[in-house]
Simulated assay, not measured.
Amino acid sequence: MEFHPERLVGPPRGWDAARVSVLSAVVFVAIYAYYALVHQHRTPFTLGLAIGMGTSGVAELLPESPRYLAAVLRLAGIGVLLALVVAVFVAPDVVFAT
């Protein structure tokens, strides 16, 4: 696995790159809504996944000119997902809402 920093700070790559992130964010929001409305049980884990994936997807849908904003949104998405992974190990009962 190689790290390509030019992809992190490069220009947005459009719908082809954002498709998986945006659609998975929509699915995670739907899962969150289903459990909140039907079972009255909110799962912050799926909401965190939706936020992380959504920000990464939005970063790829920006126009070509704001490269800086796309890089910030990519890093924010990675940060949210990494914080979620850390939270799973530090406080799993809070993340999984048991």
Rank of each mutant, 00 (worst) to 15 (best):
T43Y: 15
V58P: 03
E60N: 00
G14M: 00
V9A: 15
V22G: 01
S65G: 13
S21D: 14
S21P: 10
G79S: 07
V26D: 08
R19H: 13
A70E: 03
Y68T: 13
I51N: 04
P44T: 07
L69C: 05
V38S: 15
H39C: 10
G54P: 07
V26F: 12
A25M: 04
L75R: 11
L47E: 01
T43N: 14
A83D: 06
V80F: 13
V29Y: 10
V58K: 05
I51P: 02
G48W: 06
Y32P: 09
G57Y: 01
G48R: 02
G54R: 01
Y68V: 13
T55G: 05
S24D: 03
A76Y: 08
E64M: 12
R42T: 12
L61G: 08
G48T: 01
A59L: 02
P66S: 07
L47H: 04
Y34H: 14
R74K: 12
L81T: 09
A17G: 00
A30G: 15
A50L: 06
L69W: 06
R67H: 08
P44W: 07
Y68G: 14
R74M: 02
Q40P: 05
E60M: 01
G14Q: 00
A18V: 04
L8A: 10
S21K: 07
A36F: 11
L61Y: 05
V38P: 03
V26C: 13
G79I: 00
V58A: 15
V27D: 08
G52W: 02
L49C: 11
Y68R: 15
Y68I: 10
L62C: 05
G54I: 03
L49F: 04
V38W: 10
L49N: 04
F45N: 10
A83M: 12
L61P: 06
R42K: 14
L82R: 02
L49P: 01
Y34C: 12
S24C: 11
F28A: 09
L73D: 00
H39Y: 14
G10Q: 06
L82K: 06
V38A: 15
L82P: 03
P63R: 06
D16Y: 07
V20C: 08
R7N: 09
A76Q: 09
I31M: 13
L82N: 06
R67C: 06
Q40W: 12
A71M: 12
V58Y: 08
A25V: 02
A36I: 05
E6C: 07
V27T: 11
G79N: 00
A76R: 04
S65M: 08
G48Q: 04
F28M: 09
G52H: 04
L84M: 12
E60K: 03
